[in-house]
Design a protein around this nucleic acid. Structure first.
Lengths: 115, 115
DNA sequence: GTAATAATTAGCAGTATTGTTAAATATATA
DNA sequence: TATATATTTAACAATACTGCTAATTATTAC
């Protein structure tokens, strides 16, 4: 699934809470419903958004439908993020005032101000 | 800023593209506008969403307003993700009210099916 | 002062999202 | 078959989002 859909799905508090509930393992929809004040159909639709984004999968066991986390989707988002993040968190941000570095052939060079 | 706002801000293709444009360094708004087919005010509002989410910051230099990436915001999202991902290079961030720790006498245990 | 450029804000329309309740579907069991 | 439970789908209202154009603000140069 696209990173966009994954990020968008995570941009809702209820859906992030669902993801956290599923961290320890699969749960039937009912158990998830019970953790919210919202009506069941509301959460059901949140679950379907998560499923469409590839963040959860389902299996039926009798009358229950178990939801579980698809960590690969979270990993995809993490992989989109990682190129932006310095290797280790070893170097704490040092409030740099230095000019941002731009590659030599950067088409935006002309915009780099001189201070 | 909240992880929710960060995720929500990244859940839009134009905004993710802006983030990628800023990866190499700061850019004035005009340079960003030029990379899109959308009208400048549209992109301007996207920039303000990113700024509200803490993903970018600005500085004025003359008539230009330079936007730059705030990697700390991306790192916050990354830290929310890390505990879900196996090879956790996770920060030992143990911030209390984040993920609902499910205790050993897990109230959901009864939902764990036997296969 | 006026003019030019950079950027944001205001107001509006179309669409998407999120919540609701009621109805429908699927399964298990008496 | 009928009934009960689990879950989703349908239909709807309220709100949020995204795009546009036009107007406004900020800065620089003349």
């Amino acid at each position: 699934m696209a990173v966009e859909n994954i990020a968008k799905a995570l941009g809702d508090e209820s859906r992030r809470k669902i993801i956290e509930l599923l961290k320890e393992g699969e749960l039937p929809a009912t158990a998830i419903f019970d953790q919210f004040e919202y009506a069941a159909p509301t959460i059901s639709r949140h679950l379907s958004v998560l499923k469409d984004a590839g963040l959860v999968s389902t299996r039926r066991n009798g009358v229950f439908i178990y939801y579980s986390l698809e960590k690969d989707a979270l990993r995809q988002l993490d992989e989109w993020l990682s190129p932006f993040l310095p290797k280790a968190k070893a170097a704490p941000k040092e409030k740099t005032n230095s000019a941002p570095k731009i590659p030599k052939d950067n088409p935006f060079d002309k915009f780099q101000s001189e201070f």
